[in-house]
């Protein structure tokens, strides 16, 4: 697996998110109140809402379009809703963020 440097943790506000562009679409990178980071596809399992634009609480995000709550850890919808988005491995080293490039680019199919 190749890790691609995407920036520093301080580029993302706490309880916020930023996007990264990939040939397969956008990936949303989240930073929680407690400095955990997660990367998931920026595409709500409901109707494709941009999850990066939602409100981040705990380790979950509420979709801005119709309020599904998506777990950042598993990518699964929480509560009564059913569906999941892909999660992308991400790691922090010396405050720098890396995503697993292989997973990012291999999903072309």
């Amino acid at each position: 697996m190749t890790w691609a440097l995407i920036g520093s943790i301080s580029d993302i506000p706490r309880r916020g998110a930023r996007c990264i562009e990939t040939p397969q679409g956008k990936i949303a990178v989240f930073r929680t109140a407690e400095d955990r980071v997660f990367a998931i596809e920026d595409h709500c399992p409901h109707k494709g809402g941009p999850l990066s634009q939602g409100i981040v609480h705990g380790a979950a995000v509420t979709c801005p379009l119709h309020n599904w709550v998506i777990s950042l850890e598993t990518g699964k919808a929480l509560g009564a809703d059913e569906g999941a988005v892909r999660t992308i491995p991400i790691k922090v080293e010396n405050d720098m963020l890396f995503v697993a490039l292989a997973t990012v680019t291999d999903c072309a199919a």
């Binding site: 990264i20 990939t22 040939p23 990936i27 990178v29 995503v99 990012v104």
Partner: peptide
């Protein structure tokens, strides 16, 4: 602004 572009 996007944070980064990867594999573009």
């Amino acid at each position: 602004r996007p944070l980064a572009a990867v594999g573009m």
